[in-house]
Amino acid sequence: MTTTEIAPSLHPAGPLTEAREKMGRRFAYGFLILSIVPILIGYAWLIIATLSIRTEGLLPRNAEGGIGGFTLRNWDFITDSAIWNAMLNSLLIAVAMVIGVGVASTAGGYALSRMKFAGRKGFLSMTLVLHAFKAEMLLIAIFFVLRWLGDIPLIGDYIGFNSVGGVALVMIALELPLGIWLMKGFFDNLPWDMERAALIDGASRFRVWWQIMLPQVRPGLAALSLFTFIAGWNAYLVPFTFTVGTKVANMPVFLSQLISDTAPTNWNQVAAVGLFQMVPLIIFFIFTQELLLNIYAGGSKGT
């Protein structure tokens, strides 16, 4: 949205309405600033904490209790390969989820929206019911499935228990009911005529899906990808349950491993790792801000 056209108002703006508009804008900004302050303070505290030995409120304290005591020690983990490994695992899980959920949801959503086949109704209601199950309830069953997958020759090591692939598979499965229903909804709203026109123009059914229908649901797919990426990036329960040790840990699991029961926890270091985990997400948001606004503003812009 680079330009905004405003319809000419019916009445020429007199000094009175102008003043009122100004007031309104001031009020809006004031409200926004007020509501954002607590969040900003939270982030400020987080950043200060990661750079100090210890903090008291927002104030960093040194060993003697005076103000000061800045240190970069909390960030030492940056040079540790374990965190980069965890980051990579997080990224792998998130990306695998975006791809897996994206492909399966658009294909499945299209089929459920547009094609007649036996068991279609049953499948639809079942996915809804499945979505109602929380992941926690399924953990034990999934564990057995993953163990079994791990026994498959050749690929078992990549998709079984204690593997990044296995975690991604489970996360994809848990995300699919929502994704399929979401995409089905988007396809339901597309006119049949466009599809018929493409069939008459000479496209195969697959090509209709790929070249004609998919571009129409792009905003929906973008939103789904975003939710999925965040869900994958922040995934904790599933990776924590189905991985052992640091090799296959993702960022949230790595973070939890810093909090030990036996040794005193360095909370400032935990804060630093937490901040570090957010960096990619923040960068991601900065770059996709405009796209996101468009999605939330109601889908495609038309042009």
């Binding site: 005529d193 466009m194 018929r196 026109a197 493409a198 069939l199 008459i200 000479g202 496209a203 129409q216």
Partner: peptide, 20 residues
């Protein structure tokens, strides 16, 4: 015979153009 092999052209009420 499949629609694409029937040698037909069709114009729809909604035009059914490809918006992208």
């Amino acid at each position: 015979v499949a629609p694409k092999d029937r040698g037909i052209g069709m114009v729809f009420q909604s035009y059914a153009l490809y918006p992208h």
